[in-house]
Design a protein around this nucleic acid. Structure first.
Length: 208
DNA sequence: CATAGGATCGCCT
DNA sequence: GGCGATCCTATGT
């Protein structure tokens, strides 16, 4: 049975552990009267003010980054390259700006809606193979930035469920984050986590 | 007010 | 593998 993740999951201060634990969890959206869900297969941790790759480096606090300083369990969504709405899970205590960027997923529910949003005729590996495409498939928008992930469902909202998918620690591959060359030495930190998409192929998803 | 640049994507060759 | 799209955000004057 599905269990919505609560504050205890998100408010942990170990953002690397949260990034790992999000693999296999199911990101859900209710947008435009439609519910869509994706199993997460790739995440990246952004570790607070000490992390030069983070928007909150050196405690930078602006209207855009303000949601990162909320308590764990809120959304941080920002526009990248003027086009892509990238979704992050805010983690840790209030005023500690940890976040986990959700980079990829596989469909779990609402496939027709996700195909329509992506302008695709059928599902393939590229349907949600990057942070921009995943957010688009789920209808995630910058207006969701700052919203709670733990409040009861609304007509326009996001949350994350545990659908019981197990991800063994040795199935997780980690490596450096993508697109953060500007971050100097921090660009090489192994803060990116993935499980192969095959882990959650269609046969396993049937019947859940 | 002006400007530079970005936690990307998809199409082109 | 190379490049243009596209516009918000942050920063500096």
């Amino acid at each position: 049975m599905a269990r919505r993740l609560g504050p205890g999951f998100y408010e942990r201060n170990d953002v690397l552990a949260v990034a790992r634990d999000l693999l296999g969890k199911v990101l859900c959206s209710s947008v435009d009267g439609r519910v869509t869900k994706a199993v997460l297969i790739e995440t990246e941790a952004y570790a607070g003010p000490a992390d030069r790759a983070s928007h909150a480096w050196r405690g930078r606090r602006t209207r855009r980054t303000e949601p990162m300083f909320a308590a764990g369990g809120h959304a941080y969504v920002y526009l990248c390259y003027g086009i892509h709405h990238l979704f992050n899970v805010v983690t840790g205590a209030r005023d500690v700006p940890h976040a986990v960027l959700v980079r990829a997923g596989v469909p779990f529910a609402g496939l027709e809606t996700m195909l329509e949003r992506r302008g695709r005729p059928r599902a393939d590996r590229t349907l949600m193979a990057g942070p921009g495409t995943l957010a688009r498939a789920l209808g995630i928008h910058t207006r969701h930035s700052g919203q709670s992930l733990t409040r009861p469902a609304t007509v326009d909202g996001l949350w994350i469920e545990d659908q019981g998918f197990e991800v063994a620690p040795d199935a997780i591959v980690c490596g450096p984050r993508i697109g953060v060359d500007y971050a100097g030495e921090d660009a090489r930190l192994p803060y990116r986590f993935c499980v192969p998409a095959a882990h959650f192929d269609a046969s396993e998803l049937n019947g859940r």
